[in-house]
Nucleic acid binder design. Structure first.
Lengths: 288, 288
DNA sequence: TAAAAAATGAGACAAGCGTTCCATCTGCAG
DNA sequence: CTGCAGATGGAACGCTTGTCTCATTTTTTA
């Protein structure tokens, strides 16, 4: 009976943040060696998650038994249960973005207010940025810059959903005083516009599934003229990839049926500025 | 000697990405049971990191010994060494959002090279998203949705740097079958276009410092016609704010002189979708 | 189809694990 | 200084772990 009472008194912290708070709170009332471990645990949470009781105790400069007393003092029944909290923390942190996005999607679907919609788009954008910064192929990036920096005129080709990116690229290239041509024409003169492109020029083409047929067709024509294409698309099966000299695979997360543009946008900005920088450098070298 | 040769032949993947690539590459040449574990490992990397050989084998539906053969086939000398790679992955991924951002920014600032430019733009975009999700005023957001949902036609007004956002809004509104008009005209008929707007319509206007004079002027004219304006701009001193019924302050981080658009973009997407949703709901209520 | 080779399953085993127990030490009240 | 309770160290224990071995099954080859 009294044992049952005792275990009910001590609320066992099940998540890392609660545990952390509990430790900080009791910090000053803990015995010396136990406090020593407490400090080590908060400083090296990863070691607690992965290490063995023996290795952790050695690193912290205490005996393994002290480690267990520490766990018990916090209400756990042993080191193993305490370690689970530290492991769970790693699991959660790792998948937090995807899970958060999934949760938001579910929330938004059941109609949980407009704030959820906003949060969803922010989460989708963050996820996309995370992904691209992990997966960007640096060699492709360098190749693309080389191709574009050599071009006399950079043509920019994108329709529909990708069009905003194209219009931004055109704006930024203009600001950098790099000659460029956005392939769009209210008068339906795209074909003629493309006809002017030569192998000394280059194209940035952007298209995601479902690929705008016009983009694909224009990319085909322009690549047959020998103009090198730098493509931003969403998979190696993209019809755009086959025409491209260099292509980037960008996986954008979506929300409410609308895919983010943040990763594509960041890549586009980086490409543009890097090309500008490369031109300045080679310009200096030519006429020093 | 022959042993030395053997170990040198097999390059042991030390980081998770390499390991993943290796597995995917050999996927089809692996024995059935081994392939079974390979698939499980890529699907449940967390389980591999934390589980014991026995528990993982049970979850994957194989014998523990098969797990070890899998590890050896990849060049590891046992399950334990393979597990270390999966653990290292969690350790690295764990670095929190802010830490990662700081690392990116540091790299971008000190490190020359083109990768640094890319990192810089990703960092700027992430920072902007962080900021906006902290500072977005929920009441303003609701007000803006109310104003826009009531509009017969939504006019979209933005030039230069903000134009990509406007073109995206127009695209998304179109997809949601919401009548809209992007205020741009190759023929210089903007004034006439604006003239059609009535108080039963609404405007989304976007402009950041240095404010495009045309945007400000058009916003002034259209507000004098009694058309409510929802503005996205960068400060309360913005000339756009004074004409607006509702306005949002969006602080975008910049890199290399180019400001991010990610926060503005996320807000624009959220506004658009939320308006679409609100219209569906009130539509249902009106004629059930 | 028969023989050889590769893959697999299942049990054995030593090493290392978390935990417990008890002797010793430390700090403090009387 | 003595007595005592809590804190600590270190050895011992039982159990689970990863790995190895070997018999059996499956696949490949001739």
């Amino acid at each position: 009976m009294s044992l049952g009472g005792a275990t009910m008194d001590e609320r066992v912290p099940r998540d890392f943040e609660t545990l952390r708070a509990t430790i900080l709170e009791r910090r000053h009332s803990l015995p010396k060696r136990i406090a020593q471990i407490a400090a080590y645990a908060l400083d090296n949470p990863d070691d607690i998650a992965f290490g063995t009781a023996a290795s952790i105790a050695a690193s912290a400069g205490v005996q393994p038994s002290t480690l267990i007393r520490f766990a018990q003092q916090l209400g756990f029944d042993g080191f193993t249960s305490l370690q689970l909290v530290f492991r769970e923390r790693l699991r959660e942190r790792n998948s937090s973005y995807d899970e958060r996005l999934a949760a938001l999607r579910a929330k938004a679907e059941e109609g949980a207010g407009h704030r959820a919609i906003f949060d969803g788009f922010v989460a989708a954008a963050s996820t996309s940025l995370n992904d691209i910064s992990r997966t960007l192929n640096e060699d492709h990036f360098e190749d693309a810059i080389t191709v574009l920096a050599k071009a006399e005129t950079i043509y920019v080709l994108a329709k529909r959903r990708s069009y905003p990116v194209a219009s931004y690229i055109a704006y930024a290239l203009g600001k950098l005083k790099i000659r460029n041509q956005l392939i769009e024409s209210a008068a339906g003169l795209n074909a003629e516009m493309i006809g002017f492109a030569s192998p000394r020029d280059a194209v940035i083409a952007i298209s995601f599934s479902p690929y705008a047929p016009a983009t694909i067709e224009e990319a085909r024509v322009i690549s047959e003229q020998g103009v090198p294409i730098v493509a931003i698309t969403d998979s190696s099966f993209s019809p755009l990839a086959q025409f491209a000299r260099v292509w980037f695979e960008v996986a954008e997360a979506d929300f409410a049926g609308f895919r983010s543009l943040s990763a594509t946008m960041a890549l586009a900005m980086a490409l543009t500025v890097a090309v500008g920088e490369k031109r300045r450098d080679t310009g200096k070298k030519r006429k020093p």
